[in-house]
């Protein structure tokens, strides 16, 4: 039977852990709020860009030069680029594991093709660096995911788009966690390049174009890709903090359960030793008579 002191020590250790998880939960909550604000702030631009793209592509449809734009070029998929957005840190429940599993599934689905991974976030990079599935070139890493600027994400996107334009790769996919709500993230896999134009609706034809539509389209498309990646990373940051918050909340309540059980056990042990002492005293007195 463990001694009273041992149990007391364990209770103290669990309490310390609980304090840490509680603190982490609160930090994650604060960061989550900031991350959410950034996601919201990025929405107007994205919405306007999409709208503009729709009207320009409508006007440029059927234009020979527009269909020759390099970002719209469809080639047989032989060399595939995957952009994997993970977190830099763990302790966020299944956040990174799910992403990595999805990436591995992606790899086995596309087996036989030449796949390169561009990892944003340390976890994804570390995992795939060890497993040597990174074909060719190494990875761009965004170090401080929480302080990310648009320019940083631009660098990653431009590198990838340039490779696509140069014909080094035939398709680009993006895997990231989308922020659904504080308790739910949605694992998302999308195809970035070639851009699939939605053929919906009629062209809102009554715009005056200062530049020919195909020229405008040519400048809008790279921006659209940049913006998609930027937003994916913002979503991922928010989702990461939400996941960490949920995980740390669960850890704190688990710690509370453990403490309760241990305290109960400790009291029982103490009671047993007192009872034993009383018996000893009583039987000692009885022996004297």
């Amino acid at each position: 039977m463990p001694s009273l002191i041992d149990i007391r020590r364990r209770v103290r250790s669990v309490k310390n852990t609980q304090q840490i998880t509680k603190a982490m939960k609160m930090v994650a909550a604060a960061k989550l709020r900031r991350a959410q604000e950034r996601v919201l702030a990025a929405r107007p631009y994205a919405a306007m860009l999409e709208q503009m793209l729709a009207s320009v592509s409508g006007a440029a449809r059927g234009d020979d030069q527009a269909s020759e734009l390099p970002l719209l070029a469809v080639r047989p998929e032989q060399r595939v680029q995957l952009i994997l957005v993970t977190a830099d840190r763990g302790l966020a429940g299944g956040f990174n594991t799910n992403l990595i599993k999805a990436a591995q599934r992606f790899l086995s689905d596309h087996s036989g093709k030449d796949i390169r991974i561009e990892a944003v976030g340390r976890k994804g990079r570390d995992f795939f660096a060890k497993r040597a599935t990174l074909s060719g070139e190494h990875i761009g890493l965004v170090n401080k995911v929480a302080k990310l600027t648009y320019a940083e994400t631009q660098a990653v996107t431009q590198r990838v788009t340039q490779r696509y334009i140069d014909g080094e790769i035939d398709a680009v996919y993006l895997i990231y966690n989308e922020f659904k709500s504080v308790i739910a993230q949605k694992l998302t896999e999308t195809k970035l390049l070639p851009i699939e134009m939605k053929d919906e609706g009629q062209a809102p034809g009554d715009y005056l174009y200062e530049q020919p539509p195909d020229v405008l389209l040519g400048t809008l498309l790279p921006k659209y890709i940049e913006n998609s990646v930027y937003r994916a990373i913002l979503e991922s940051i928010a989702a990461e903090q939400a996941a960490r918050m949920t995980a740390m909340d669960a850890a704190s309540s688990n710690a509370a359960d453990v403490i309760e059980k241990l305290t109960l056990y400790m009291n029982r042990v103490r009671q047993a030793s007192i009872t034993k002492e009383i018996i000893e005293v009583v039987s000692g007195a009885a022996a004297q008579e």
Binding site: S55, L208, Y209
Partner: peptide, 18 residues
């Protein structure tokens, strides 16, 4: 605008420019 300044007043015709 990319091809010169654009002066916009209310009721301007629909226009797209870089």
């Amino acid at each position: 605008g990319a091809d010169g300044e654009l002066g916009i007043l209310p009721g301007h015709a629909a226009l797209l420019s870089s």
